Computed example of a mutant assay.
Amino acid sequence: MQRLTEQILAHAEGLPEGTPLAAKSLLHLGNRAALDQALSRLTERGQLIRAGRGVYLRPVASRFGTRAPSVEQAVEALASQRGEVIVSNGAAAANALGLTTQVPIRSVYLTSGRSRTMNFGKQVIELRHAPRWQLTLANRPAGEAVRALAWLGPDKADEALKVLKRKMPAGAFGELVAVAPQLPTWLARSVGKSAYG
């Protein structure tokens, strides 16, 4: 019979790059205490990376050695595994939309789950719980616009919306206008003004 650590590694190797492992997803292999111990052993040996409390990743082997999987892939996989909405934060969204030239130094994502930090090799990712309206239209351009506008704040929203109206496809801007009732009053007012002004 295969040892538990070997079974865990075999399971991990069958998963796409960046897919997180959790003891709960391995309960078919053994009891929780044994799984926790085996995962801990594999982490000590460098065969798994402990990304956060109860979350492990398989390192990616390349000709230059091993590295942590890409943050974007791991965050996407974590979102689908946990049933959470996880999206880039407002500063990253504003940068992606060309509303600011500032590039965020820290990797911060907004989540419908609890706030926590995760480690991807030497990079630390922060997951911050966000209100539901900031997670609206999760990975769509209009959702990115909502987060960017929330980050810019009431003083810069009107000007940013003029830029967005010119840059965004009409359908995406229409989506933004359609979700205005779900947004805070200041933002809904600015969106309405830009749509009909």
Rank of each mutant, 00 (worst) to 15 (best):
R132H: 09
I86Y: 00
G14C: 12
E159F: 06
V85T: 15
K165R: 15
V191G: 01
A130V: 00
A148V: 11
T101E: 12
E84V: 01
L110F: 13
R41A: 12
V87F: 00
Y109D: 00
V124A: 14
P184D: 08
A77S: 15
S62C: 11
A130H: 01
L21S: 05
A160Y: 02
S25N: 11
K162N: 06
L27P: 04
T185F: 09
A96L: 09
R116A: 15
G192M: 08
A74P: 03
Q73V: 02
Q182M: 12
L149T: 03
Q123C: 05
N95M: 12
Q182C: 05
A150G: 02
R45A: 14
E17G: 05
D158Y: 01
A170Q: 13
R116H: 11
Q37K: 14
K167P: 02
S70N: 14
I125R: 01
V85I: 15
Q7V: 03
T5F: 05
L27Q: 07
G46I: 02
L183R: 02
P154W: 05
P184T: 12
R41P: 01
D155Q: 14
P69T: 09
S40K: 09
L42P: 00
A10H: 14
G121F: 11
T100D: 13
I49P: 00
T111D: 01
